[in-house]
Amino acid sequence: MSEIAITSSGRGRGVKFRPVTHDSSFARYTLIATAVLFLAIFLFAPLAIVFVEAFSKGIGPFLTAFGDPDARAAIRLTLLVAAISVPANLVFGLAASWSIAKFSFPGKSVLITLIDLPFSVSPVVAGLVYVLVFGGQGLFGPWLAAHGVQIIFAVPGIVLATIFVTFPFVARELIPLMEEQGKIEEEAALTLGASGFKTFLTVTLPNIKWGLLYGVLLCNARAMGEFGAVSVVSGHIRGLTNTIPLQVEILYNEYNNVAAFALAVLLAGLALVTLGLKTFLEWRHADALSGRARRH
């Protein structure tokens, strides 16, 4: 019966009509063309030119750029910085979301706002605040100098600045996700005798793994690509305190276009992989990600 009902309610053949909630095809095509053109000019072209410039002299000069010891040092430093700052913010994200989502306490929304704070601070200001704390004229500057510890214009400063700018990524993904999931499953596991740590490992972690991966992915992309904050605290010492983005800047300012864009290809590739995985997670595991508005 129901099959008949469906076929008979289908559109009549040859009858053209437009639902009142649809735009006219003229409006539709104009808007689509405008959007596509705008995105082509402002998004596709900047991405495409990175690859075009990098390979403008062929594959040889492109590869030569990676033979440069300074470039290799920059790649190593970028990997090191990400390897410290991403796990640091991962642990923080887990701790913050556990305490915020599984318990109720006064001042919770203030705490969430404070966690988001680094996103509203300019990267340059993020670098500057660490100069004010650890720099030569800074709060601890004289004490650090007396003890021979260097933070600004050295790797620790770069790591700290990177941790600052990537601070909220994991936490802001996990907090709404864990709030949506509630605490019933954890309470069940605990009352059945599981230890707190075992509950986290076998109940909570499987529930949040995709959201966690999502947060880590975005955190890592930003950690490897950060420029402003790192630029302020790095001191730009070649082979020592230059990350990939800083090395790109130096090469570009020396009119060494091919080498600058060759290193930029690495970062653009990272961005594309991040976008690809992010889109995949949103498409395949949408229900396992936080449904709240997602802004970075």
Partner: peptide
């Protein structure tokens, strides 16, 4: 998916391109 490119592309790369 590409709308998020400015979030993902490092600012220095966007700058030189």
């Amino acid at each position: 998916a590409f709308v998020d490119l400015p979030f993902a592309l490092p600012t220095a790369v966007a700058g030189i391109s």
